[in-house]
């Protein structure tokens, strides 16, 4: 804290906050994240509109889905986000080895998510729940497959960041690429935590 004098020589106290970066990551990644969030928002609006026009179908729809698969994938996505946070904390301590390990944990989570979602789709089809069944399943496949693709390329992005970590590109002082990937991964997580209640829980 320091003191400053104004024109009337009265003393005013000024609190000096620690200097923090105003925007985590780069402007480019935020443009991408906001675009993706808008894309998912449009899908959610389609879901809400389809629901009010087809209340019976949307009442029955979630009861036929595999809630266990949806729940496990939610736990996996949240845990992967936690691992990514730990990776960022590790690189801030200049520990790139630990950061890479945490990111590998997130990659394994991403892979597990994709495998579970693949078997969930297979299970659905075995129950006769395909894209043509009714509008609920049309929306379900459109939204979840879109998210599936995001997890796929997000996982590939994490592997790329691990490669960059291992080549010594990221340090305690310069690791914006890692932060950008972490933010993008959290966006994928945010989309899923919205999809889960809409399609699996709320009737």
């Amino acid at each position: 804290m320091s003191t400053v004098f104004d024109n009337n020589t009265s003393i005013k106290m000024r609190i000096e906050f620690p200097k923090t970066k105003l925007i985590p990551g780069s402007m480019a990644i935020w443009a991408a994240i906001l675009s993706e969030m808008t894309e998912f928002a449009l899908m959610f609006i389609v879901y809400f509109l389809a629901k009010v026009h087809n209340p019976e179908i949307f009442y029955e729809g979630p009861t036929k889905l595999n809630t266990s698969a949806g729940t496990v994938n939610t736990l996996i996505m949240l845990t992967s986000s936690y691992f990514v946070v730990r990776a960022v904390m590790a690189i801030r301590e200049n520990n790139s080895t630990s950061s890479a390990r945490w990111l590998w944990g997130a990659v394994i989570c991403g892979g597990l998510y994709l495998v579970i979602k693949y078997f969930e789709y297979q299970w659905n089809i075995a129950q006769g729940l395909d894209t043509h069944k009714n509008i609920f399943y049309g929306v379900y496949y459109y939204v979840t497959f879109n998210h599936f693709l995001h997890v796929g390329w997000g996982t590939a992005g994490l592997v790329w960041v691990i490669y960059r970590l291992n080549t010594g590109v990221y340090t305690k002082d310069e690791h914006e690429g890692l932060i950008n990937m972490a933010l993008y991964w959290h966006m994928i997580d945010l989309a899923w935590i919205t999809i889960f209640p809409l399609l699996y829980v709320i009737r």
Partner: peptide
Amino acid sequence: IDYLWLLLITLTLFSAYMAE
């Protein structure tokens, strides 16, 4: 961060319970 992760997991399990 550890406690928040635990809270997120608990809320998810609670949601699944509510769904069933």
